[in-house]
């Protein structure tokens, strides 16, 4: 009994571990049970909350602070969240949710004994991790690379680490950060799952609630005072960069500068840009704000302009796959042109 309680506690905290799946299978709980049975109604409420909080707060509140939630409710709310998200199947939602789960995870792991960190790491497939005698952890550098390629900060580059015979030495703090990235990737890569239509139909109500929260969130960074900010009308180079950021891929400093200065110049606000960058795995609000502030300048006339097409070509950032690109010399020119012709089209219709 004590064992079961301990197990419930652990799985409630780390529901993405490999052994969670086995646990569910053993308990004979089916997907139908989860979405229909009364026993799981508080788990369903909690699942919805997980997702909505991830949209609104960017982190999932820890259940321990909410004394009324039972470990088993917390645990089953996780597969339920995955079902809900898969029914909606929206890229942004998946990214935002995975990041929020991983942030909650990082908070939790901070207070755990080192053995537990090792358990969790192995539980998500990081098998090479070992505790170092003198404190800290080490892990094989191929695992290290796989977990850090999306982290932009220079300090994570392998070239700035200590490696001995294939083992990278890490402090506990650094390892926790990497583990968070591992958790984020694991959650994100395993979404969406396949959910039968009939199951989704039984969840219409929470799905509607989540969808409207999602629309609200998306609307908050898509509308703009000056009217249209249409991603559709962005030049190909900017679209590519934006896509990379939203897919959490690493982009170079020049690329970041190009993207941010473009967005600022077409009238996007600092907060809206922050929202766009927030899905990046090593997102650090303070740093990003600083960078945006720097590019934006204090007065409008101090604002940096994005590089011209020819400069972008030199940096290998030009993807010119469109006839319009031949006719313009600057990404902002491209955008203005398209906005104007769009307005004209609308007027004519």
């Amino acid at each position: 009994m004590i064992d079961k309680q301990k197990m419930d506690q652990e799985l409630a905290r780390y529901p993405f571990l490999k052994k969670a799946k086995k646990y569910v299978e053993k308990s004979n709980t089916t997907t139908e049970d989860l979405v229909e049975e009364k026993t799981f109604s508080s788990a369903r409420t909690r699942a919805k909350k997980r997702i909505i909080e991830s949209l609104n707060q960017g982190i999932i509140p820890l259940f321990i602070t909410e004394t009324n939630i039972q470990p088993h409710t917390e645990f089953y709310s996780y597969p339920l969240s995955r079902i809900l998200i898969s029914c909606i199947n929206d890229r942004y939602l998946i990214k935002r949710y995975s990041l929020a789960e991983s942030k909650a995870f990082e908070k939790r792991i901070k207070t755990e004994p080192t053995e537990q960190i090792i358990n969790v790491a192995r539980g998500i497939g990081i098998d090479s991790v070992k505790l170092k005698e003198e404190g800290g952890f080490n892990l094989h550098f191929t695992d290290y690379i796989k977990l850090t390629t999306n982290l932009n900060e220079k300090k994570w580059k392998l070239v700035n680490q200590t490696i001995e015979k294939g083992k990278v030495s890490l402090t506990r703090d650094d390892f926790e950060r990497i583990l968070q990235e591992g958790v984020r990737r694991k959650i994100e890569n395993n979404l969406p799952v396949e959910v039968p239509k009939e199951i989704c139909e039984k969840l219409t109500q929470p799905i509607q609630e989540i969808k409207s929260a999602l629309e609200k969130k998306k609307a908050s960074f898509q509308t703009d005072i000056e009217g249209i900010i249409e991603e559709e009308l962005f030049p190909p180079c900017i679209k590519t960069l934006l896509g990379k950021v939203q897919k959490s891929q690493n982009i170079s400093h020049t690329a970041r500068f190009t993207l941010v200065s473009f967005l600022l110049n077409i009238g996007m606000s600092e907060d809206e840009i922050i929202d766009l960058f927030e899905v990046a795995p090593d997102f650090d609000e303070e740093t990003t704000r600083y960078q945006i502030g720097h590019i934006g300048g204090n007065k409008p006339q101090d604002q940096y302009k994005p590089p011209s097409c020819s400069t972008l070509k030199t940096y290998g950032l030009c993807v010119s796959d469109e006839w319009r690109c031949e006719k313009v010399s600057h990404p902002l020119g491209y955008y203005e042109w398209r906005v104007k012709s769009e307005e004209k089209d609308e007027a004519e219709n």
Binding site: I145, T148, T149, K157
Partner: peptide, 12 residues
């Protein structure tokens, strides 16, 4: 990342 290490690219 491995080749960057070997070439010493991106050192702080």
């Amino acid at each position: 990342e491995i080749i960057d290490y070997i070439l010493g690219r991106g050192t702080q």
